[in-house]
Design a protein around this nucleic acid. Structure first.
Lengths: 196, 196
DNA sequence: TTCATTTTAGATCGATCGTTTTAGAATAGG
DNA sequence: CCTATTCTAAAACGATCGATCTAAAATGAA
């Protein structure tokens, strides 16, 4: 019977997420990771395989705990227009209060890793499609209940909102200024507003 | 009297831009750069100092030849609303036709390098402010001549358009799909349209 | 021609990289 | 107790990194 593990997998994955999220894949070394995860190199390799596999696990962990839980909180609990606004506003507020300016690990991965790795390309693309799907469902429901303007198709509104979200994420890392991020979403929300 | 240089600086900077733009800073090695720039390591160091300084030169070169020239082409030659639309549409079309999916070196830098380097942080932030300024001037002029809706302030419109541009850039690298990018800008353009 | 200076070419340096190895430790089962 | 298995700790491996070094080459001036 083998020796049992000393570490808690979730705890070490949280630590890995923090490292990769802040610094990116290439600039995060295995020694940094091992140090922050409180593991030795061999334990890290035993548990996760290699750097790339760890990155994948960390990204999946991040996505489950960010987008996954955020959609769950908003989609079935708020009216569609409000779900969209709350979703984006929460991201704006969290970004403005992050001293590390980490932005979004999905977006960071989309730009750094995914262009050169087919597997990550699929993960990122699928996830972006899911985010778009959330916006689509909200736009559709909002146009049906009359709370969202219907001059644009729900497909285009979903694409537009996805673009706005990506823009927020980039500016959150590069220019996390309240006037900028609040001012950015204001016209977007106005576009959603139904004219009655 | 010293031996003259064999290389053309602009040509080697173009090559450096391509390397850094496609792969990012960390994942681009000096040997890659030297190879694509057709220089030896020593020549590269003699001419540019070190990797970081070369990156700075490459980024400046990129910015002068992308944003700089694009604004020059549109701002004084087209009406304001059309300048905005042409600016964004050109970026969409170029992104859709780039097999390397390089996206935008400024955005890539904003996410990879700028969070950890004060100098680059300033370069990126200043540049984003200039892009916003372009949008602001167009929004202001467009609201004055009545071709751009005025329910949002020109400041907020500029912020919004900057966010939309960032979104385009991210999606151009991660999901360069015609329906997505075209669909994204359509509602944004509709928002600009004045209701007369 | 020599001289001084910079460039180019290729090799080398010391450090860091991702990963593996070696050895001791921790467990349950027999 | 022994055994088999996996975990943990630390050292080590081979490769690559950014940068420097050494030597030859290229120039104009004296």
């Amino acid at each position: 019977m083998a020796r049992p593990r000393q570490f808690d997998e979730r705890t070490v994955l949280d630590a890995a997420v923090q490292c990769f999220w802040k610094h990116g894949y290439e600039a995060t070394s295995i020694r940094d990771l091992a140090h922050h995860m409180n593991l030795t190199g061999a334990s890290l390799y035993n548990a996760f395989g290699d750097k790339r596999a760890l990155y994948r696990r960390a990204l999946d962990h991040y996505l489950a705990n960010s987008f996954g839980e955020r959609v769950g909180r908003f989609e079935d609990k708020l009216p569609p227009a409000e779900a969209i606004r709350s979703f984006l506003n929460e991201i704006v507020e969290r970004s403005l209060s992050d001293p590390d300016r980490k932005g979004c690990m999905l977006v960071n991965s989309a730009l750094e890793v995914a262009p050169h790795d087919a597997d990550f390309q699929r993960v990122v693309s699928d996830m972006l499609t899911q985010v778009e799907g959330f916006f689509y469902r909200c736009a559709l429901a909002g146009q049906r209940d009359g709370s969202i303007a219907d001059d644009q198709s729900p497909e285009d509104l979903a694409r537009f909102l996805l673009g706005v979200l990506m823009g927020i994420r980039v500016l959150a890392r590069s220019r996390p200024e309240p006037a900028l991020l609040h001012g950015l979403v204001k016209p977007a929300f106005a576009l959603l507003k139904a004219h009655r």
